[in-house]
């Protein structure tokens, strides 16, 4: 096995062109997997450690809602830095930014608390210091802590290759456990996240078997926009660890729209969740428990009343 650390995008793409090359981001998942399957390892690990172009938080000037692909910004460098006072339509999060860096960023804390809470619950301090947002996404685990918030937020991924960049909705990027739409020679360069308005309540809850170093048994990210009289205008909900990928439930979102954010409405929605969700048994929890809790977590939204 070989390991290289490109220092610019051109070098990165060159390294990724080698047969058997594989990106090493934070290493917190990949190196654990390589330890248990040492002989299935790639020929070359391409480390992102020394690539500042893939790090940082910036305003995403290129955000156009509904636009699936976007060219430009070939070097993937972040645009000018931004402060918490400005109103941004979207943020561009460099894929190699660590969880700790994101968590410490005032814009993430102020504007994307649903993501900040997921980051705060992820792994442990050293794992957050090493692991990256891009790594969490590309690992594509149904238990990936940042995935439910990013999906609820409607994030897009920016995929860079020698030939150019493309954008995909995160939902289209995640294909199944451990599977993504990343093509050979491509790297996940950034995640572009539309910033919800101030009328949107953001909520994240992770149920693990313990309070740190925990893999999610069930998690829920919720964005709820309420209007006059506390009525729900729009709800975006995404559950982790209850299916092969992060689970959305349009029926529940539809059922909540127009209702007052109340325990009654949430209880009804929870029963829809329980009838629709199809979790599995594993060593951490049974399918029955996951089904019940997936519904129950909605009830917590009553605290937002």
């Amino acid at each position: 096995m070989n390991v290289v650390f490109p220092r610019n995008m051109a070098a990165l793409f060159k390294a990724l062109d080698e047969p058997g090359a594989r990106v090493l981001a934070g290493g917190t998942d990949l190196l654990v997997r390589l330890r248990s399957h040492p002989d299935s390892g790639p020929a070359t690990l391409v480390g992102l450690d020394r690539l500042p172009a893939l790090r940082g938080v910036a305003e995403d000037s290129g955000w156009e809602p509904g636009l699936g692909t976007k060219d430009g910004r070939g070097d993937g460098s972040p645009s000018e830095s931004v402060g918490p006072g400005t109103l941004h339509r979207a943020l561009r999060l460099g894929a190699a930014t660590t969880h700790a860096e994101l968590l410490a960023h005032p814009l993430i804390r102020a504007r994307l608390p649903v993501l900040a809470q997921a980051l705060a619950d992820l792994g442990s301090p050293p794992i957050r210091n090493m692991g990256t947002l891009g790594g969490n996404i590309c690992t594509a685990s149904p238990a990936g802590d940042t995935l439910p918030p990013l999906l609820a937020l409607g994030a897009e991924v920016e995929l860079a290759a020698k030939t150019g960049t493309r954008r995909l909705p995160l939902a289209s990027f995640l294909l199944g456990p451990g599977r993504t739409a990343l093509k050979p020679g491509e790297v996940l360069a950034a995640v572009c996240v539309p910033v919800p308005g101030v009328d949107v309540r953001q909520h994240f809850e992770k149920v693990g078997r313990r309070d740190a170093l925990a893999v999610a048994v069930v998690s829920l990210a919720a964005l709820v926009r309420t209007g006059h009289g506390g009525k729900i205008v729009e709800a975006h909900l995404a559950w982790g660890s209850v299916g092969p990928t992060v689970w959305r439930c349009p029926e529940v979102e539809a059922a909540l729209a127009g209702r007052k954010l109340s325990l009654t409405a949430l209880t009804e929605a929870a029963s829809i969740v329980r009838s629709q969700v199809q979790p599995i048994d594993d060593v951490r929890a049974s399918a029955d428990y996951r089904r019940e809790v997936a519904g129950n977590l909605l009830l917590r939204l009553a605290m937002l009343e």
């Binding site: 078997r209 740190a212 060593v283």
Partner: peptide
């Protein structure tokens, strides 16, 4: 053994 490593064979952390 189903809980074959420290990610499944859990002991309390400082937050537990």
């Amino acid at each position: 053994i189903q809980t074959a490593d420290l990610s499944t064979c859990l002991i309390p952390t400082a937050l537990d």
